[in-house]
Amino acid sequence: MFEVFLKKGKEKAVLQRHPWVFSGAIERVKGKPANGDIVKLLDAQSRFMAYGFYNDQSRVALRLLEWDETVAVDENWFRQKVATSVEGRGYVLRAETTNTCRLIFSEADYLPGLIVDKYADYLSVQILTSGIQNNIAVIIDELQRLLQPKGIYDKSDASSRAHEGLETANEVLAGSPPPELVYVKENGITYGINIAEGQKSGFYCDQRDNRHLLAAYVQDKKVLDCFSYTGGFTLNSLQQGAASVVSVDSSALAIETMRQNIELNGFDAAKHTAVQSDVNKQLRRFKEEGQTFDVIVLDPPKYAPSRSALDRASRAYKDLNRIAMLLLNKGGLLATFSCSGAMDIDNFKQVLAWAALDAGKQVQFINQFCQPEDHPVRSSFPEGEYLKGLLCRVY
């Protein structure tokens, strides 16, 4: 096995079992490991520290897997990690009203660079590191053994693959290709999921609990769902008796799928208006038209992919929330989210305080949103806590 040596003084994070080692912390490499090889990490005194995936093209040069030198990171190791992850989703998998969830969540499940989502009888996989790519055959075999899905689809089209020297992929890995729409249930609502052409792995199951929580506030209210995608918050609002829902998204495919989902569930289409538009432009248009709402949902894409982008992202979040606050009726509710791992909840609250000040509004934080149990946060990897949100009452 190839050996990688840390610089002196760079041991702390590894000893605390953080799974990332950046290229700048590496003193030297003994041999010439290929990208994705499993290597042995040693400290400056040649003492064992961990095993991990190596990649000299990535800023994260090592993604650590195992801290016990006596444990072999072999086929059985990967099978056990997959099985443990699936077992940990047992509560969600047994739910009668939900048959979609995240089965494997990358570093949080000790499989860095692997995302697996379950959509009814199909699995959607994202492979984001060369190490997982090298071991995907055994992972797929174990998923088939445990779950017997009709098909497993590779949705590895994330731009981050380029940092690992990987090309994008969109193909069937096992079984049958998914139909154009796979129908899933979440909290008793049926959704048509386009795995092959949809965003990310096909659906945002990380908002499952938050959609359900917010729906308790919308009865007889006028709701605006921004970045609505295929209608998660929209459908929950219609189910819980919202007076009307306006959904805004830039994707024509998402809008059409949302309309189909409304019809599929037998909700009153007359209460719903879909607008295909850039959200920021549309919010300003609503302001010019004098429109107001009782509840507004803001669930934007990731504005801060890294800490270096945090200042720019904070300005974008502030402006987005400021204009939304101006569209709320007095005492209205703003459910606002950030899926940027670099934006922690305290920073997010500060951004909203700035937005309120600029809008001339008073804001109360009355509830807090987070990612559900199938998106766990590993204690040694706080970066995995990416989704946060606040329910605000705006005066």
Rank of each mutant, 00 (worst) to 15 (best):
S306Y: 09
C101E: 04
V125S: 01
S156T: 06
K302G: 04
S379A: 12
W67Q: 03
V73P: 00
Y54S: 05
S251M: 07
K185A: 09
T190I: 15
L310A: 12
V71K: 14
D346I: 10
K349V: 08
K221W: 04
N261D: 14
I140H: 01
G384F: 00
L334G: 06
A174P: 02
I296Y: 00
A254M: 02
T336K: 00
G290N: 05
L41E: 04
A44Q: 11
S159D: 15
T273S: 14
T129K: 00
A34F: 10
A269K: 08
Y204C: 02
A316F: 08
Q16S: 15
A25N: 10
C370L: 09
I366C: 10
E180F: 12
N55R: 03
L333S: 00
L235R: 01
K12F: 12
N99E: 09
S308D: 14
E197D: 12
L224K: 01
V4I: 13
C101P: 01
L123S: 05
I255E: 06
I127Y: 03
S247Y: 03
S58I: 06
L114G: 02
L213K: 14
D56G: 05
F233V: 02
D206F: 12
I323N: 00
R17K: 15
E289K: 13
N280I: 06
V246S: 10
A25W: 07
E3C: 13
Y386W: 13
Q126W: 00
R378Y: 11
Q207W: 01
D268R: 07
D358Q: 11
G113S: 08
I152V: 13
K12A: 14
R94C: 07
W77I: 06
R102F: 08
Y229I: 11
K40L: 12
G331N: 05
C370P: 04
Q148R: 11
K10D: 13
E373H: 08
R17D: 03
I115W: 00
G241Q: 07
A169V: 13
Y91H: 13
R17Q: 14
A83V: 06
R259E: 15
S85Y: 00
L387C: 08
M325S: 05
S247A: 15
R94K: 15
G332V: 01
C101L: 05
T292N: 12
R59T: 15
L320K: 03
C101N: 09
Y317P: 07
L310V: 12
L181I: 09
I127R: 03
K8I: 09
C339H: 06
A95L: 13
E27N: 10
V377C: 05
D311P: 02
Y217M: 14
G90E: 11
Q133H: 13
P301C: 14
S308K: 15
A356Q: 01
A359P: 03
L298R: 06
V377H: 08
R79K: 15
